[in-house]
Simulated assay, not measured.
Amino acid sequence: MGKIVSDLAHNISGDLNVENMCTLAWKDNDYLALHWAVLGGFEGELAQHTYLCLFTKMREELMINGDLVLRNCWIVIPPTAVKGVLRHLHSLHQGTEKTKRLARQTVFWPGLTNDIATTIQTCTKCQYYWPSAIAEPLVQDTVSTIEKVTSDLFMFGSHHYLVYADRYSGYPLLSRFSSSPSSSDLIKEFRFYFSLMGTPNILRSDNGPQYRSSLFLDLLRDWGVQRPCRGHSENY
């Protein structure tokens, strides 16, 4: 699992030090509180912690990976490490929207969007190359950017997982369940995936009962997604 965090960090910058981030995590009281809250299910007094309140609505998406917290497949950056990650994200001076897209591939922290915008707006070099008179267009992903996806259910340790990946880029999303997920559980996650990454044309999966249920097939039909009858995620 540690390799997942290293690979995500490498997507931002090849010299982003994950070990240093872990050290900062264990020295940051807010992040430690989040770490224990994820393990404890956000129960008791921890749920009233000011920093933790920023995560309560997304608590089902959080999991522990070594010393760090993940939100789905994004590293939750410790507050004391945010400035360093911002520095790496900003190092190429690519403008606000490109920097946001780079960040959203791998990392998360409350206020990420505003922090990136503020950093770039106050950077002399960015203002020189990206003058305010030339507004950088907002680029939105369209349905056609993700044509084919694959999905599978598997078990690791005592938990069940749902993986959903873009076939072109290989970029995965991961959901964790305490017990074997039902068709309704899959529908909830797939609606989130479609909203986040766009609606694919084709979904490949095995023929597990959740994927064959009438409820799940109705979801695919409503969203205009085809599922080949003989599709199998492991062989696709």
Rank of each mutant, 00 (worst) to 15 (best):
M1A: 13
V5Q: 05
S6M: 15
D7P: 14
A9V: 15
A9L: 11
N11V: 08
N11D: 12
I12H: 05
N20V: 07
L24C: 04
K27E: 03
N29L: 11
D30W: 09
Y31T: 08
A33H: 11
A33F: 02
H35L: 12
V38T: 10
L39R: 12
L39F: 13
G40D: 10
G41D: 11
G41W: 12
G41I: 08
L46W: 09
H49C: 10
T50P: 08
Y51D: 02
Y51S: 09
T56N: 00
M58V: 11
R59K: 10
R59W: 06
E61K: 01
N65F: 14
L70D: 01
I75W: 13
I75F: 12
I75Q: 09
R87D: 12
H88L: 06
S91T: 00
S91I: 00
G95R: 06
G95E: 06
E97K: 04
R101P: 05
L102F: 07
T106D: 07
F108L: 02
P110D: 03
P110S: 01
I120F: 07
T122K: 10
K125S: 06
C126L: 06
Y128P: 02
P137C: 12
P137R: 06
P137L: 05
V143S: 06
E147R: 13
V149E: 04
V149A: 05
F156W: 11
F156N: 03
H159Q: 05
H159P: 01
H160F: 01
Y161T: 05
L162V: 07
V163S: 11
Y164N: 03
R167W: 09
S169T: 09
L173P: 00
R176D: 04
S183K: 10
S184D: 14
I187E: 02
E189C: 14
F190H: 02
F192A: 10
N201A: 01
L203E: 09
R204C: 15
R204E: 15
R204F: 14
S205G: 07
N207T: 02
Q210P: 10
Y211T: 03
S213K: 08
F216H: 07
L219Y: 02
G224A: 15
Q226D: 13
Q226V: 08
H232G: 04
Y236A: 12
